[in-house]
Amino acid sequence: MRVLVAVKRVIDYNARVRVKPDKSGVDLKNVKMGMNPFCEIAVEEAVKLKEGGSASEVVAVTIGPKAAGDTLRTALAMGADRGVHVLEDGEVQPLAVAKLLAALTRREEATLCMLGKQAIDDDSNQTGQGLAGLLGWPQATFASKVVVDREAGRASVTREVDGGLETLSLKLPAVITADLRLNEPRYATLPNIMKAKKKKVDTVTAQELGVDITPRLKLVKVEEPAKRQAGVMLSSVKELVDRLRNEAKVI
């Protein structure tokens, strides 16, 4: 069984996000970038499936500019066997990502697609669902536990839902997206970082895959959230009651 795992290069979750003065987006100059944390979890799970004998090969895929290759190397250092880099400098929206991944899934003859449930930069939470739709495969999103039964050709996926845990049984091939508590991604060890340098990475373009990635959505503007007003210290309960009554008018 071949697992295709998608990884996205995003702003480091700790980095300070600055909106461009013209409100056309977020300033990415000199900002620390790294693998989307949910993608890391997806890679870890895919590698675990291979280590547990359920998967025979893990192929990591990224879509983005040349620098996204670093993120692909991280996936390879974590244990993915080889990589595919869809080289694309411009904007690629979730539907286009799903189409590219669908094309690659067919090309690679993958049986399972692992993705993060969403990327922390635009929080779209659409790619996994879109991919399953395009492929006509069953999907299990927000996975907190994955068990693959290779012989039965099924995957059992536990999801954290509002009321508790829900367990789905899917027929493979399928698409699974990872939630936060699925696993704790491993660190990339030195020997594995060195080995990753020698692993094979294919570079393709959307055109070569025959996918039209023209944006369908128009970004109107990006704005920072309104600044919260500073709090004040009151000296007595009396003052608090007075301000709640006369200023906030809540009592």
Binding site: D12, Y13, A15, K32, M35, P37, E40, Y187, A188, L190
Partner: peptide
């Protein structure tokens, strides 16, 4: 001189 090691891949690590 070094047996093994990890390199933090992001600020979380």
């Amino acid at each position: 001189r070094v047996l093994d090691g990890v390199v933090a891949q992001d600020s979380r690590q």
